[in-house]
Design a protein around this nucleic acid. Structure first.
Lengths: 119, 119
DNA sequence: TCAACCTCTCAAGATATGTTGAGACAATGA
DNA sequence: TCATTGTCTCAACATATCTTGAGAGGTTGA
């Protein structure tokens, strides 16, 4: 990931509505959610406001959309999220393998830790 | 980490000068760098501008400062960086352990993968 | 075709953010 | 004490961003 992409990504995440959308879609997984469902989950965001932020997030590459009938379904792009994290922490360990341990530990999810070494 | 802290953190990272400072300090490790050295590494940022962004980052908890003689040394706060990542990806794996694998893989540093399971 | 539905686009005002330059504070060594 | 060095604070301007409301574009089922 290049700096410019990272800047756009972090800017996209630095707004309350957008951060909530991303976290919602991270939880929703690849199936994603329709724009209307996102709006409901967020509780009373006007459609234009929601659309503005969804467009913003899509331009940042953090989410993607697909049409299903009259619904537009949004889902998180996990590769971009991974890229942001990688860009931020790149070179953190050069000569100091212990330093970024808490960062790795932050991914306290159910992932098999062996996955960390692949790809 | 709470939402408000995460928002402040991502906002701090969404500005070119600040993102460069953080990456510089991530590489510098716990020893950190003096404000002047940071300014030189960044190449021609005025002192007031640099100070503004350093203060901003410190308020966001992403860096900390200590005085050494007439120098002020800044260093990255890895726990906050870890918190940001954790906040973003929390619950990503519920029922889908394979989804966040690329995110974990993004931490392609020299860390011992077993560290991922600790703390 | 028509009405209902879901979502997007656009322009305008309010608010937040970044940059600059001048000046001030603190620490050092002579 | 004084000059020098390193860094911070402040106010003003320029710019970017968010919200709102009205309106329009596709899609569906009758």
């Amino acid at each position: 990931m290049e700096e410019q992409h990272a800047l756009v990504g972090f800017a996209a995440l630095s707004q309350e509505t957008r951060l909530r959308i991303v976290r919602l879609l991270v939880k929703a997984g690849p199936e994603g959610m329709a724009a209307g469902a996102i709006g409901e989950a967020l509780g009373g965001a006007s459609t234009s406001r929601l659309s503005f932020h969804l467009t913003h997030l899509e331009h940042a590459g953090l989410i993607r959309s697909r049409r299903e009938g009259r619904f537009i379904i949004y889902s998180a792009v996990f590769a971009t999220l991974a890229g942001l994290i990688a860009f931020l922490m790149r070179d953190c360990c050069d000569g100091h393998p212990d330093i970024c341990a808490p960062v790795a530990a932050a991914l306290d999810c159910a992932c098999d830790p062996t996955l960390t070494r692949e790809a």
